[in-house]
Amino acid sequence: MEYTDVVMENFTCPKHVGEIEGANGVGQVGSPACGDIMKIFLKINDDGIIEDASFKTFGCGAAVASSSMATDMIIGKSIEEAGKFKNSDVVDALGGLPAEKIHCSVLAAEAIQAAIEDYQKNKA
């Protein structure tokens, strides 16, 4: 197992940990049985811009780092842009992940999509 420095940094001092008060889009994926759950909180303003994002993660180092990096990357983006967000964007930003840890970045991308869907459902 070989993590890049960026992964370790994001694991050791993750950004955006916790629950945002007044989040209007929340998505959760994974299950404890599989050893990973990722929950993403979004605060989206009326212009459809993601003003703030945060996460809670039960998972390995790569999962924590992916959550930290992913939330950091989507803050300030429109929900259209964020909707196109892919797991490979996280992997690239982290400087790569070990092959068996790619799925942890997939979780992050999926959790974001789930949170956006939740926001859209709430709005509708």
């Binding site: 993750p14 940990v17 959760q28 404890p32 990722m38 809670k56 039960f58």
Partner: peptide, 8 residues
């Protein structure tokens, strides 16, 4: 780590 966990 527990603070970070969604199932805490």
């Amino acid at each position: 780590l527990r603070k970070m966990s969604p199932i805490n």
